[in-house]
Design a protein around this nucleic acid. Structure first.
Lengths: 212, 212
DNA sequence: AGATTACTTATACAGGCGTATAATTTCAGG
DNA sequence: CCTGAAATTATACGCCTGTATAAGTAATCT
């Protein structure tokens, strides 16, 4: 007996694309990129596999979109702390650094997703562009905050300080995600603040607002 | 007409295992983990696919062996710079930091493999042990070099300085591997030295030996 | 030289992959 | 209500994957 077709509702482009992207991120976070097959993605999104090709020309297309979204979200989450931060440049920088080293930015799920996409970044020029854009966007934001301190004018020095600050934050972020049990609560934030402060020659730790 | 069997030479376990592991690393370097299929690996190693199962119980086994080898090699390569370094503690630390931020340690292959198998690291206790061992081994080495400077006695301060120094090195290493074209030659080494120096409150840049 | 061992090749298999396309259902507008 | 376009399902295809196993060949030992 021929099984009946499953019923469905039309949802429209935006909702479907979002559901499919979310499914990709879920799966990559759980089992790495190889777990995100078209059938698994469709299943997770409550849809059949054929629909993917209706909204994305190819699976690689969907992958790219998912990566773009997660990177943008992470930098957006991080930047949001500036919306509620005081006007004082030092406090703003301290809040920004600290926010990078605690949830939701410091999140092993986000890290798993990021790590899963790394090999695609190296292979695919479009992915590399997304990475460069978000990475440089984050670094530029950091550099602006450093510039706002008004302690440095030389652009070359500013660039080097931004790269170094970004690197120490990235390194702490990475280690906190991979070996979360190796650090005491708040230790990474504290080390991040004192390290960036040391790089800038500026006491940053004392400027952190009480609670985020 | 039945094509003739290809002729071959017996090589023995050690040579074959090594060739297969090297093939995995080659392929991952070129096309990411998903490029390392059993057939591609065998082809690269000058062998037919069936032989893999003769030396490794499963493909995951071979993958683990390749991961272990590349991690051990990376820390070994990095530590080797100390063999030929002068006795002066500051020079030794500077040489160690700089070596971490140039080839062969700054190598996208190692990073790609590590990133590609982060999920395996989290699930498989044996892999997590390898990671923790190499990571903490590196950090302990760094901490010892910092201690040899004789500027700090408080163990807690020493630990924080080691974590921060390790983080900035990791962050620079990571960015250099992912976006090698975003940095001038030697830029990462220079930033690494000045950043670690800033964290330690010690001018490290002037202690780098001329050539490695 | 001939038998034996185990190294290596070759082939088969079942399943999963991404993609293509036809069939069907939903929903909006006349 | 009915028609038509778009959304969605369903099915099929060819290729590739990892694994299993049989067949064959090279080197070793006697």
């Amino acid at each position: 007996m021929p099984a009946e077709r499953r019923t469905y509702r039309r949802e429209g482009e935006e909702r479907r694309r979002e559901a499919l992207i979310d499914a990709v991120l879920d799966l990559v976070a759980e089992g790495g990129p190889q777990a995100a097959t078209v059938r698994a993605i469709a299943d997770r999104a409550g849809v059949t596999a054929g629909l993917i090709r209706h909204y994305f020309q190819t699976k690689e297309d969907l992958t790219r979109a998912a990566y773009r979204q997660v990177m943008v979200k992470m930098t957006t989450d991080n930047a949001r702390v500036l919306d509620t931060a005081p006007a004082d440049p030092a406090t703003r920088l301290a809040a920004f650094v600290a926010a990078s080293l605690r949830p939701p930015v410091l999140d092993s799920v986000a890290f798993g997703i990021w790590a899963g996409f790394v090999h695609l970044i190296r292979k695919d020029p479009a992915m590399r562009d997304v990475h460069a854009q978000t990475y440089l966007g984050y670094r530029d934001m950091l550099q602006q905050l450093i510039a706002d301190l008004g302690r440095v004018n030389d652009p070359a020095v500013l660039r080097a300080q931004a790269i170094a600050s970004n690197a120490v934050i990235d390194g702490l972020w990475m280690e906190g995600c991979v070996l979360p049990d190796s650090f005491d609560p708040g230790e990474l934030e504290r080390i991040g603040l004192s390290s960036v402060g040391a790089i800038l020659g500026f006491d940053l730790s004392s400027h952190l607002p009480v609670a985020a």
